[in-house]
Simulated scan of single mutants.
Amino acid sequence: MSEPAARVEWTMTGGIADVRLNRPEKLNALDDEMFTALLRTAAELRAAPDLRVVVLSGRGRGFCAGLDLNAFRALAEGRDFRPADSDVRAAELGGDPELTRGQRAVLGFPNLPVPVIAAVHGPALGGGLQLALAAHIRFVAPTAMLGLPEMGWGVVPDMAGTQLLPRLVGPDVAAEMILTARRVDGTEAARIGLATRVVDEPLAAAMELARTVAARNPDAVRALTTTLAAPSFAEGLAAERAALRTVTGAPNQREAAAAALEKRDPVFVTGAGNARS
């Protein structure tokens, strides 16, 4: 578990990592320490052998209001607003060193070998929305406010949002949202495909789904996560075939089938050596 004062806190119970942005007095705005904490958290989760699913949320009144205002003040003054890598080595915390630190902070979560569920309430703006976009599933409160306001500051989204948003809402809606800096509430987010589901209590719904995922064959869940991330249709089909070979007949798959036949809860084993090579 991370230290209580960390910008990101996380605990794990039953394979469920409960990850919370922890700067509530600033609506979890992204500053240098938050970027470092996101990178470090993803690295810690990647090394956790019992990890089965991640729930990502924000403490306080919102998910994440985006980049800290001090960064925008730097923009107005012509200073570099981008977080530096001086205190974090890319090789140590993972991620492609060719990416910016913000891109690595966002993409560290979908690059985990398990599903990531975002629970969004209040503001999810700029970098905050881009972090939510990277999740596999998004439960959003009806009163949440989502948007990419970067154009209003004279810049473009630079934390993978230009690539992630069009895949959810289509290139035309993404272009309109980014160019106008328009914000949408949770209800409209669901209508345009930005939210998986609108719920009054996103964190409770995310945890309920996480418990369902954690009760599945962890080998199959990890294989599915890899398959869903395939960059092309042909590579996805190849990933399906590889997943079937890896999972079928392995101890956890046999346990899942036996438990289903016997109408009991399965008892899975996590760690190396369970799936077939």
Rank of each mutant, 00 (worst) to 15 (best):
S232G: 05
A42Q: 12
P157H: 04
R52A: 05
L27I: 14
A118L: 02
H121V: 02
G193S: 05
L165G: 08
T270K: 00
R59K: 14
A132V: 09
A175M: 06
V114K: 01
V247Y: 14
L164G: 07
P4W: 10
V247K: 09
D32V: 09
V173E: 15
A257K: 06
T143F: 13
V120P: 00
P113C: 03
E25L: 08
V184M: 04
L244H: 10
V54L: 01
V156G: 02
E255G: 08
V54S: 01
R52M: 00
G108A: 02
N70P: 00
E77I: 00
N217G: 02
A210N: 05
L164D: 11
G126Y: 13
S57E: 11
S2T: 15
A29R: 08
L209K: 00
D200I: 07
D50A: 15
G127V: 07
G236N: 06
G271Y: 06
E235G: 04
M1W: 07
Q253V: 00
L148V: 08
V140D: 05
A204M: 01
G108Y: 04
A223W: 10
A141H: 14
P266Y: 05
M159V: 13
L261G: 04
A275S: 13
L39W: 03
S232A: 13
D219T: 03
L27N: 14
W10C: 04
D50F: 03
L164Q: 13
M177F: 04
A42R: 04
M34Y: 06
N28M: 07
M34C: 12
A189W: 10
N217P: 04
R183V: 10
G170M: 05
D18I: 01
G108T: 01
E201Q: 13
L38A: 03
R23I: 03
V169L: 03
D172R: 09
A124E: 02
T187V: 15
A105Y: 05
L179E: 11
N111G: 09
I117L: 14
L51W: 07
S2G: 02
A243Y: 08
A124G: 09
A259D: 08
N22D: 11
Q103S: 05
G152K: 13
L27P: 00
A257Y: 06
D172F: 03
A223L: 10
M177I: 15
N252C: 12
E255Q: 15
R245E: 14
G15L: 12
T143C: 04
T100R: 09
P142L: 11
D265C: 00
A90R: 06
A206Q: 04
A272K: 05
R104K: 09
A259G: 07
S86V: 14
R222T: 13
A76K: 11
A17T: 08
M34E: 12
R59S: 13
G78D: 11
R241C: 01
G62H: 01
D96V: 08
L203K: 03
D96E: 11
A275Y: 08
R138D: 11
V88L: 13
V173M: 12
V173W: 00
G94Y: 07
A195V: 14
T187I: 15
F268Q: 00
P218D: 07
L133Y: 07
M151K: 09
A242R: 14
V120I: 15
R241W: 07
G78R: 08
E92R: 13
M151C: 01
G108Q: 01
G78S: 11
V184T: 11
N217F: 03
P157S: 02
